Each structure stands twice: as structure tokens, then as C-alpha cells.
Computed example of a mutant assay.
Amino acid sequence: MSKYEVNEAGFFGAYGGASIPEVLQPRVEELRKCYREIISSENFRKEYDSLLRDYVGRPTPLYLSKALSKVHGCKIYLKREDLNFTGAHKINNAIGQILLARHMGKRRVVAETGAGQHGVAAATVCALMNMSCTVYMGAVDVERQRPNVEKMRLLGANVVAVAKGGGTLTNACDEALNDWCQHPEETYYLIGSAVGPHPYPDLVARMQSVISEEIRRQLLEKEGRETPDYLVACIGGGSNAAGTIFHYLDNEEVKIILAEAGGKGVDTGMTAATLTIGTDGVLHGARSLVIQDERGEAVEPYSISAGLDYPGIGPLHAHLVRSGRAQALPITDDEALDAAYELNRLDGILPALESAHALGALHRLKFRPDDVVVMTLSGRGDKDIATYMEHARQ
């Protein structure tokens, strides 16, 4: 077994597990016992692959940006997850989990969302499969991601604005878990990131691993080799990052760079750089790194990006950084905005604010002329246009 793979107890190294209320233990155990067998079955794979191809629009392109390559003095490839149906990588996981939920006999889905991309993906697949869908979203995020809120409602989802706490992703996760506790029998919790109790971090990583699977094939075609020198991805909870690196975890010649939300700076108190300043703790059912106070309570994070302002991190990524397999780089709001405007100007691509953090990380790294770098463009910037316009006017 890979030393980076989840073990039988549900841990990646020291991180993971399932610290959950008693009422949810049978539901999580039910999922743990069946998920690997179901998602590896021929019938599941056939339907999953078919939907990814014909409904989502995969494979997504691996685009060589000649302009960025010139800026950084190497070859920069962009894995274009922004070209997926619904505008981000989130649909890969949502398609897989809705098929799993149907196989388990569930008819009701709850989900959490920050930037709204997972909420839209969950609402989309629930409409496709004729399932009830309730999406919890922080009240602050509802206001700054209004287009995605309206998309979810048009798709038939019940969008619940959560005003508790800071009104962001952390609070949305809390309420989705509370809902699941109250309706455990009939409900499937469709988690959008590689967080939560085991087996969700492993399940989400496997659903997103189509990204690295395609990167291997596409690099072989374009470069004559399957492996890049660097993989770069933004990280909040960690789903697009998990998908980007999944098939390369054991190849330690491939450098893994995780770009997290530095906010106003890691020393300002206005940050979501969990991998940089977080300490060991438990959040939303798993042991991981958490931005927390001296009492072990999660501290409200900050980021200009609604999808990255989460005070925790997936246990896989905590293990990768603590073991030295991956490097975390906290990218500030300003660095992310500058990188987004640069890509828009050079390539005509407006990235999601989340993806802009990964672009910002490129400027922190020193490359050799023969380096091949693959950066996952996790989503498109339509949802963030108001923020881009606000800052462009300054």
C-alpha cells in the first residue's frame, strides 16, 4: 500500500479518522463498507465514465500557455477544469457521489458550498437524478456569489443561507452536518471537498482523480512522458488538489505545490492559510490541521475567495505537507488578483479567484528552462466578476 494512501482506520499518517456524533456512525459505517466496492464495479465505472464524457465534457484540455511559459522561463501547462460543465472541477465528484447515493437507495441530498461551484454541481446532479437537494451556504457567501445562488434555485435546490458565526463555508458545513444528524436514514451528505469523516476524504480524492489520470495521458502525448516536474493547485479543503496529484503521490520526483489563501498576510489574523499556521485539531469529523484558538475552537478565516476561506484542510494534504511530500505556499489576495489579471491579459482566460491563488504561486517559484509545470485551473471567473470589477476600479 502507498504510504500516502488512507489506512484501514481511515488515517493519512496522523490525520483523518471519523470523529462524529453517535447518530451518524451507522450512516458513515454504511458508506465506509460499500464505497470502494461500488465505485470500482464495472457498472458504476461504465455509467460514471459515460456521464463524464457525454454530460460533463471530459477530457478537459491540457493547454500549453506560451505566454506564461515565456514569463516563467519554462513550460507551463494549464489543466482546464474551468471548461467542465458547471464551470469547475466540482462536477467530477458530484457525478460520482450521486451515483453512489442512488446505489445506496438515498433520495435526499444535502451539501455545503462556499463559492457556490459545489452547490451548483450538487444541484445539477440532483436534477439529473430526480433527487431532493438542500444546499447550505454562508450568508456572506450568498451575497458575494449571487449568480451561483440563483443557478442552484433554478435547478430546484433549496438554498439555505446560514447567518451563524461568520456566515461562510465553515458555518455552512456545520449546518449541513446538523441536517444530516436530524435526517440520517434518508439523507446522503454530498461533501464537496476532501474533508470530513472517513471515508469522504478518500472518496472525493478518487472521484477527482480523473484529473491526474488525464494529465498522465495528455503529457505523454505532448511531451513524450507522463510525469511533470511540478504540479500546482490551489487548496481550500483540497478536492481539486487531490485530483491533480492522486496518480503522482508515490513519484517523489514530481514536486507538489499547494497554494492556499494567505489573505491579507499570515501574520495579520485575516488569512485562511491552514497549512502554514494551523495546528493539530478536529474539524467536521476528521483530525487535521485547523486554524484555532487556545481552547481548540476554529477561528473564522478570511480570504477574498469564497471557496478558500475554510479554517481546516483535508487530512491527506495535512499529511503531505507535514511529511514533506508537498510544499504549501500562502498567496495573498493581491498576489492572486495580480495573477488573475495577468492570465486574462495574456491568454484571454479569466480564472476563478480560487485558481488565481495557484497562478500566484508560479511567481514564488524558480524554474529551470526544461521544467514542465502543470497547474490546475480549477474553475472559471464568471462567478467572481463583481470582485474583479471592484478591484480593477481602484
Rank of each mutant, 00 (worst) to 15 (best):
S378C: 15
V110A: 04
D267G: 04
M129G: 02
D280V: 14
M1V: 12
Y341G: 10
T170W: 12
L329N: 07
S69Y: 05
L155Q: 10
L353Q: 15
R216C: 14
V149M: 07
N171I: 07
A318R: 00
S239K: 00
E81M: 04
K383P: 10
G166C: 13
F11A: 07
G314L: 05
H198P: 06
N240K: 03
I257E: 01
L359F: 04
G307W: 04
A361P: 00
Y248H: 11
Y230K: 00
H319L: 03
Y302H: 09
G114I: 09
I245C: 02
H72D: 05
E300M: 11
N344F: 14
Y230Q: 01
D384L: 12
R80Y: 00
P147T: 00
D141W: 01
T134C: 12
T244M: 15
D334K: 15
R217E: 11
P315N: 09
Q117E: 13
P184I: 00
E37Q: 08
A94S: 14
D49W: 07
E354L: 07
R45G: 10
R144T: 10
K33M: 08
E260A: 05
A67I: 05
F367R: 06
I385G: 10
G263N: 12
C173E: 11
E5S: 15
H363C: 02
E5W: 12
L343P: 06
L337I: 15
H118E: 03
V254N: 01
R295M: 10
D371N: 09
D202M: 09
A157G: 11
L155W: 14
R107L: 10
I39K: 05
E81T: 00
I98A: 15
D202N: 14
L346I: 02
F85C: 11
V28A: 15
N171T: 14
G379F: 02
K90Y: 13
C126V: 01
G119L: 04
A356I: 11
N251L: 14
R393W: 14
F246I: 01
Y35T: 03
Y189P: 09
